[in-house]
Design a protein around this nucleic acid. Structure first.
Length: 582
RNA sequence: GCGCCCGUAGCUCAGUUGGAUAGAGCAGCUGCCUUCUAAGCAGCUGGUCGCAGGUUCGAAUCCUGCCGGGUGCGCCA
């Protein structure tokens, strides 16, 4: 919609240049904005004001010239000049109605796929092996998954990269402890409590010299590809990822085992990357380590900052892994974009790794790397979100608490609900609430986790959105119609009908916005406005009432259908399921 | 010392890569259920957009300098 108006204006600029009204060298960025005030139409552009100076014309005069030159369009019913030189566009109600008819029945809610699909790698979730997923993993996992779904929906080829922490010196200790456990109990060991496992392994490592010696030995053997160590290591990875998969499934996160591309995947590349960087003269020996000095960054002494890519003992660091990963993603997938959904604290580290990869020619100019950074998760007190005793909150525990709270929320309102159905509804509401409250905030800032704010029907929350959807389903049941069978044209006469329709046609712009910025909160803001527009429409425009004419009723039912479909598609892109009743 | 992020209503947050009178929700106050789910709707109250300059037709948004908070910076990841 915006794009269409933009194209019209670009054509206009070209025509005006040909006529000599605008200097040929002027290259304005044609901007079309949604208006805030109804009296300013539906869309507006400031083009005339931008071009006034180079064209040496009065902005309002130029605006008139633009309007006179503008090609005709079925979307636009009226164009006006306002204020200092704004051009206001009024969308045609007939066109709007037809759009809604398509939105009502199209499985994509009339969102077009992109003309030129890209190959995009999304790096998100990244839990650690031999540790349970903690609460802070939720941001990367949920935000990354929403953006991934959106990109895929638009027709891009998306490669999910779950960069799990499956490598490092701690694995010697873990293997040694796993071995000890297996020797002591005949059956396959139970790793249900990974935290305890890790803690015990560490304890043995610190207190038992023989154990520590064996652990160090296993690190070397594992890195050397020793089969026994490799098997033990794989066992740890599999057990961990099986537990994580249960969480992904519960959260409706689209990751699977096929998407695992852990740190270990890049091991073989590390020596050659270091050798290549050295050969290219980018890396040098310094105090026994291999270091890349970057003029772009200053160290504490004011000299170029040194980034270590190989330790004195020959070991590699995570910067080396990230350089190799970038290279791998370009070489293997020909990625056009690589999106990293990682904690904002790692910004500098990522910038440096990418800079090195660019200098080395691993990352061509045609591949963009984007840090979709997010802030920390804080408690209501503004401090990092922890358990009462100050420990890390396990993600599984958090989800279980959400479930219990949802049961109470729904059960209190619906005392007659069967336990089984209550449980099903509560599961959807709980997962939706936890995800939505995270997704709905601009990810760059810290996020205050507050149970009371997310599990409520008031405001920009998942329950409100799910309620709007189920309310529509209830209207269909009451009307005794199968939503899919509805047909007939849509007429927009009431203000609230038109306002709702105006919102419905914005989905396309919103989806593209989420994809471009990696910012799912744009979708949440939109859905909240849509649900609000629906609620107002619902209050003002009766449907299942005796005095409603048949054609009006049919039109409004289709408007409901378009709304339900849009909510379902939009929430689906966030990884949130809808409910037929609640 | 150097770098990055942030500062908008009492609280949680928006503000569309410079646009029209800075918006929601919560909290507080008013109305609206014999009427499609009141889990809702309509409205009121609440702002020196951290501070001070600058850029221009126009700044919460861009630039500079302060104040305040967070976070990172050579052998962990």
């Amino acid at each position: 919609m915006k794009e269409h108006i933009q194209q019209l204006l670009e054509q206009t600029v070209t025509l005006l240049k040909e006529n000599g009204h605008i200097p040929a060298e002027a290259a304005p960025r044609v901007q079309v904005d949604r208006t805030r005030d109804k009296s300013h139409g539906d869309l507006a552009t400031n083009l005339a004001m931008m071009l006034a100076k180079p064209a040496k014309k009065n902005p309002r005069e130029l605006a008139q010239l633009i309007i006179d030159t503008l090609p005709a369009s079925e979307l636009v019913s009226k164009v006006e000049i306002a204020g200092p030189g704004f051009i206001n566009f009024f969308l045609d109600a007939g066109w709007l109605g037809k759009q809604i008819e398509t939105i009502a029945t199209d499985s994509r809610a009339n969102v077009a796929a992109v003309a030129a699909p890209q190959t995009i790698v999304t790096d998100y979730s990244a839990p650690n092996v031999a540790k349970e997923m903690a609460v802070h993993h939720i941001r990367s996992t949920v935000i990354g998954d929403a953006v991934t779904r959106t990109l895929e929906f638009l027709g891009h080829k998306v490669i999910r990269a779950n960069h799990i922490g499956d490598w490092g010196t701690q694995f010697g200790m873990l293997i040694a402890y796993l071995e000890k456990m297996e020797n002591e109990s005949a059956s396959d060991m139970d790793l249900s409590d990974l935290e305890a496992f890790y803690r015990e392994a560490k304890k043995h490592y610190d207190e038992d010299d023989a154990f520590a010696e064996r652990a160090r030995n296993y690190v070397v053997k594992l890195q050397g590809g020793d089969e026994y160590c490799r098997t033990m290591w794989k066992k740890l990875v599999d057990i961990t990822m099986a537990q994580n998969q249960a969480i992904y499934d519960r959260l409706n996160v689209s990751l699977s085992n096929d998407d695992v591309m852990g740190e270990s995947l890049y091991n073989a590349l590390l020596p050659e990357v270091v050798a290549d960087l050295t050969q290219q003269g980018l890396a040098v020996e310094d105090d026994g380590a291999t270091v890349v000095f970057l003029d772009e960054y200053k160290g504490k002494d004011g000299n170029p900052m040194g980034v270590i890519i190989r330790k004195r003992d020959g070991g590699f660091l995570y910067t080396t892994t990230d350089i190799a990963a970038a290279k791998y993603r370009v070489d293997t997938f020909s990625a056009d974009r690589i999106l990293y959904f990682i904690d904002s604290r790692q910004a500098q580290h990522l910038q440096q790794a990418w800079l090195i990869a660019r200098k080395a020619g691993y990352l061509p100019d045609t591949t963009t790397t984007e840090h979709c950074a997010f802030g920390m998760m804080l408690g209501k007190d503004g401090k990092p979100f922890k358990t009462r005793s100050g420990g890390t909150v396990k993600l599984a525990d958090l989800l279980e608490e959400a479930h219990q709270r949802a049961i109470k929320l729904i059960g209190d309102k619906n005392p007659d609900l069967q336990a089984e159905e209550l449980d099903t509804i509560a599961t959807t509401v709980a997962m939706a609430s936890v995800k939505y409250s995270d997704l709905s905030k601009n990810r760059t800032t810290d996020y205050v986790f507050d149970w009371d704010n997310m599990l409520t029907f008031e405001g920009n929350t998942a329950p409100y959105m799910l309620y709007a959807y189920s309310r529509i389903q209830s209207i269909f049941r009451k009307a005794g119609v199968n939503a899919a069978d509805l047909n007939g044209s849509i007429t927009l006469e009431h203000d609230k009908e038109e306002a709702l329709a105006q919102k419905l046609v914005q989905l396309n712009d919103v989806v593209h916005g989420v994809a471009a910025k990696g910012a799912p909160h744009l979708m949440c803001t939109y859905l909240f406005e849509l649900a609000g527009a629906f609620m107002s429409f619902y209050e003002a425009c009766p449907i299942n009432k005796d005095d409603v004419a048949d054609d009006v009723k049919a039109s409004r039912l289709r408007l409901c259908l378009a709304t339900a479909n849009t909510l379902k598609v939009g929430l689906g892109l966030l990884g949130i399921n809808t409910l037929e009743r609640m």
